[in-house]
């Protein structure tokens, strides 16, 4: 099937098998390697990307379903060489270790902060609870989201 998907702002047209999962389309057809695969059961969230601005687990969607829609991956977070505040905060707060869950976590955080710019710790923990991390114990991820929220609100002032 021929599909056209807007990926990080650019329209991409490809021929795919209907059964191809969105994550394989992103990784193998488009060559964007930030989305990973960590489970078989829609549990871990390391494949998370934004579909029309909302996080989805790209292992649990067929690429053909994204035809005509818009996707953002971690590769699209930085603009003009500037890290997104969420990316900068994951670095400054040591919100990552092995880095495998990081792209999905950051995309979830980005979408969440757009909906809730001043969240509590509890709200952040709730928002990232569809994404597993095995290294950090989440605490520094929470700190990173808090730091990003502060930085984003200062910028918007």
């Amino acid at each position: 099937m021929n599909i056209t998907v807007t990926v990080n702002g650019s329209a991409r047209t490809s021929e795919v098998e209907p059964r191809m999962l969105l994550v394989h389309y992103i990784r193998e057809v488009l060559g964007l390697r930030g989305a990973h695969v960590g489970c078989d059961t829609t549990s871990c969230g390391v494949c998370t990307v934004l579909l029309d601005g909302l996080p989805v687990k790209s292992c649990t969607m067929f690429a053909v379903q994204a035809d005509g829609r818009s996707i953002m991956t971690v590769e699209g977070m930085a603009t003009n060489g500037q890290l997104h505040p969420v990316q900068a905060a994951f670095h400054s707060e040591h919100g990552l270790q092995c880095g495998f869950c990081t792209p999905g976590m950051m995309l979830v955080a980005k979408a969440f902060l757009e909906e809730n710019p001043a969240p509590s710790e509890e709200e952040i923990r709730w928002a990232i609870s569809g994404n597993l991390c095995r290294c950090t114990g989440y605490q520094n991820i929470v700190k990173a989201v808090q730091a990003a929220a502060r930085n984003m609100s200062e910028v918007s002032k």
Binding site: G45, T48, L54, V56, K57, T60, I128, S129, G130, N131
Partner: peptide, 9 residues
């Protein structure tokens, strides 16, 4: 229901 990302779909 499930988790926040799954609930989006």
């Amino acid at each position: 229901i499930s988790d926040p990302v799954v609930r989006n779909q």
